[in-house]
C-alpha cells in the first residue's frame, strides 16, 4: 500500500467520523450526510486505483446495478417504512462481509495475506470472526426488518422445553469444543 493510498484512507476515515459527529446535531446533520458521501467516494476511488484491481468493467456493472436498486428502493419507499428499510439494507452489508471473507479464503493473494492453503493463522482467525459477525448481522437484521414490518411478532419467542433444548445445545457445544481442544 503506497503512502498516498494510506493518506486517502485516513482522509476518508476522518470524513466518516465528521459525518457521525455532524449527524448528532440538527444544524449540522445535512453536512454530516454529505461528509459521509464524500468519504465513501474517496474510499472507493482509492481502492479502484489500486494496482491489484483490474476488472473495471465487471466492477462497474455490479456497482451500477447495486446502486440503481438501492436508490430506486430508497426513493420509492414510504416514509413510515424507512426504519425497516435501513434494517433490510443493513442485512446486505452482513452478507457482503461473508462474501468478502469467503473470497479472501479462496484467493488470499488479492488481499496480500499469503497463498491458497498457506494463509497465516492471524488472517484465518480474522476471516472466521469476520464471517461470524457478518452472518449474525445478516440474520439479525432480517429479523429486525421482520419485526419492524410486522412479519415477525415482537414478543420473545418461547416454546415448550426451550430451556432443556438450550441446555442440550450448550452441553453438546461444550463436548465439541473439548474434542477440538484435546
Amino acid at each position: 500500500m503506497s503512502n498516498l493510498t494510506s493518506v486517502a484512507y485516513l482522509v476518508s476515515s476522518v470524513l466518516f467520523i465528521l459525518s457521525l459527529r455532524g449527524l448528532s446535531h440538527p444544524t449540522t446533520a445535512r453536512r454530516g450526510n454529505f461528509y459521509g458521501i464524500v468519504g465513501m467516494a474517496i474510499a472507493i476511488i482509492t481502492t479502484v486505483s489500486n494496482p491489484g484491481v483490474l476488472s473495471y468493467k465487471e466492477i462497474a456493472i455490479a456497482f451500477v446495478i447495486g446502486g440503481l436498486i438501492g436508490s430506486v428502493i430508497a426513493v420509492r419507499i414510504q416514509m413510515t417504512a424507512l426504519p425497516q428499510l435501513v434494517a433490510a439494507f443493513h442485512s446486505l452489508v452482513g452478507l457482503a462481509a461473508v462474501f468478502v471473507a469467503a473470497s479472501a479464503f479462496y484467493n488470499p493473494s488479492a488481499f496480500n495475506i499469503g497463498t491458497v492453503g498457506n494463509i497465516p493463522l492471524g488472517s484465518l482467525i480474522e476471516m472466521a470472526i469476520g464471517t461470524a459477525i457478518g452472518a449474525v448481522t445478516f440474520t439479525g437484521s432480517i429479523i429486525a426488518f421482520g419485526k419492524l414490518q410486522g412479519f415477525v411478532s415482537g414478543n420473545p419467542l418461547v416454546f415448550k422445553g426451550q430451556h432443556l433444548l438450550n441446555l442440550i445445545l450448550g452441553f453438546r457445544d461444550n463436548r465439541i469444543n473439548c474434542k477440538i481442544l484435546y
Partner: peptide, 14 residues
C-alpha cells in the same frame, strides 16, 4: 459483495 454494498451505499445515503 460489490453489488450488495453498492445497494447499501446508495440506499443508505438516500
Amino acid at each position: 459483495a460489490v453489488g450488495l454494498a453498492a445497494v447499501n451505499i446508495f440506499g443508505g445515503f438516500v
